[in-house]
Every structure is written in C-alpha cells, then in structure tokens.
Amino acid sequence: MSYQESFINYLKYEKRYSAHTVVAYKNDLDQFVEYSAIVIGEFHVKAVTTDTVRGWLLHLMEQGLTPRSIHRKATTVKSFYNFLMREDVVESNPASNLTLPKVRKKLPNFVDEKSLNHLLDDLGNFDDDFSGVRDKLILSLFYGTGIRLSELINLKERDIDTREKLIRVLGKRQKERIIPYPSEINNLLENYVIARNKQIGYKTDFLLVTEKGKQVYEKLVYRVVKKSLGKVTSLEKKSPHVLRHTYATHLLNKGADLNAVKELLGHANLAATQVYTHTTFEKLRDSYKQAHPRGDKNN
C-alpha cells in the first residue's frame, strides 16, 4: 500500500472525514504527486522539498486558481506530511511555513426572514401530493434545525422525539448532537408520514424517501431547495447550505449566544461559527446609522 493510500485510509477511518472531503483530499494529493513526479523525475515523499511545494502552488496560481483553492491544496499537502511525520516516515514537513495568497473573507449567503416566512406559510408554494408534503418538510427541517445535507438524507424516524421536539443527528466525524426544532414541524411530520405510507404502502428505514420508497439523494434535495428558494429570493446560490447559513444568521440576529449556535451547528471550533457574526454586525451598524442622532445615515 502506498503512503498516499495509507493517508486516505487514515482520513476515512481514523479522522472519519465525510466521503466528499476525502475525495477532495485525494484529488488534491493526486495532482501534487503528478506535478512532483515531473519536477523530481520520480515521486518519493522524501525527495519533496519546500521549493517543490512552492513551485506547485505557483503553478496553480498561474493556472488561475483562486486563493481559497490554493489554501485548500496547501492544507492537503501539509496534512499528508504531518501524517508521514506521525508515522516516522519523514522528519520534517516541506509544506510548513509557506507564504500563501490572502483569502478574501466571504460572507455567507442567507435568505431574509420575510422571504422564508412567505415560502413556508403562503398557500400554493407546495403541492398537496406526496412530493409537495415531503418537499415542505425538507425545507422546514433545514431552516428549523440548521442540519447538513448528509444529516438530513440519513435521518430516521427514530431520530426524532416529537414529544420533546428534538432531533438527533450524526454529524461530521460521527459526532452526535441533539437539536431542538419548532413545534410546527410536528404537524408537517405527521402529514408526511401519512402521505408516505399511502404512497408506498409500508414503513421505511429512512425518514425521507422518493416516490418509489428509496432514500432521498443529494441531487433530488438540491433540486427541491433550488426550486423552492427560487420562488422567494434572487440569490444566485440556492442550496441546502444557504438554509444552514440562514438558520445561523437568524439565530444570531435574534440574540442567540454564539457558543450555543456553534453547538447547534456541530462546528468543531468557534472560528467556523464566527463568520455569521459579520452579517449580524452589519445589521447592527445599519440600525445604529438609522437610529442614532449623529449616525452617518448616508455612508
């Protein structure tokens, strides 16, 4: 087994990264190995130097990759060599202490409260058939709990405590968390289960299913979210993650504690949650400008 394969297995089975993340790491590492083999003559982990890694990153910049992509690929190589150091294969990490291009902070896209209330409350936005009932539940679960796409797809009925209005999900690295949800979701759940049992005639392992009783899949959920959000927002990006951003932003705008939101989202550290405070700060600044007698209303 090659060092690259050992590293990928480490990410899968020890770090328990998601399949999507593992694929991204593998693709980045394969690209680096291919480049290094050309530069060095034959790839070997001990032959790679800081100049090799720096040359690869410069090569990627010349190809027009964004600073964010450059950072991700540098992180892949750095993680690979940290793994090799842990295994006593190499003594140093050639990807350490590199100067990387600055990444512009990107504020998360979110949908305003009024628009989402229109989507979920106005009649006619969702059909009365099985698909319509399911699709409304999907949107409500995303916005009501902030769960990830993979977490929603893998939900089972037993994961939902309708009495306490709590939902149990298994997040990244198999970390379990319990999330409260709005009471209105109970009505949507009841309507959905009735419609599902009528549609397919039996109970399923997974909560959310297709018209044929199969577990819902990523592309289907993306289509549902994009179509639904298209009715109330002109945002270019209309994805499940936008609803997760919206959930977090609305909670913070209403005064929720940052640490509490971190736990609800299942973030490993506070830095991942703090990105949402930028949006909250913008709202506070606008309120100040409008309300304070000497607020600069024109800037």
Rank of each mutant, 00 (worst) to 15 (best):
L208R: 02
R294S: 11
V169R: 04
R158G: 07
H20W: 05
D128N: 14
S96Y: 07
D112W: 00
E62V: 10
L119V: 10
D127V: 05
E34M: 14
V193R: 15
S228C: 02
L220Y: 11
L170Y: 07
L60V: 13
K78D: 01
L107G: 07
I38T: 08
W56P: 03
T249G: 06
V225S: 00
K214G: 02
E176D: 03
T210N: 07
R285I: 14
K106V: 15
A24E: 07
L149K: 09
H59C: 06
G295R: 00
V45K: 13
R244T: 08
L188Y: 11
L170T: 12
L116C: 08
G41W: 01
F80D: 06
T49D: 11
L251F: 04
L265I: 02
S79T: 12
A195H: 07
E151Y: 13
D286P: 03
A37V: 00
K114V: 12
I147P: 04
R68I: 13
Q274E: 12
D159Q: 14
T21I: 01
R223F: 06
H118F: 06
S79F: 04
E62A: 14
N27W: 06
H71Y: 09
F80E: 05
K214W: 03
T249R: 10
G201R: 01
L123F: 12
V45N: 01
K254V: 06
T21K: 09
E263N: 13
L189P: 01
H59Y: 15
N97S: 12
A271G: 07
I185P: 05
L235F: 01
G55L: 09
E176P: 00
P180E: 00
H267K: 14
A260F: 05
D205Q: 12
R134T: 03
T76P: 03
E263W: 03
A74D: 03
S140M: 10
N9K: 12
V103G: 04
V39M: 11
K46N: 13
L120S: 05
S239F: 00
Y217P: 01
R68M: 08
I138W: 02
I147Y: 04
E42W: 01
E218A: 15
K175Y: 02
S140F: 07
L264K: 11
K283W: 06
I38S: 11
A95K: 08
L252F: 09
K78V: 04
Y35V: 00
I200S: 02
Y181M: 13
E184N: 11
V242N: 00
K198E: 15
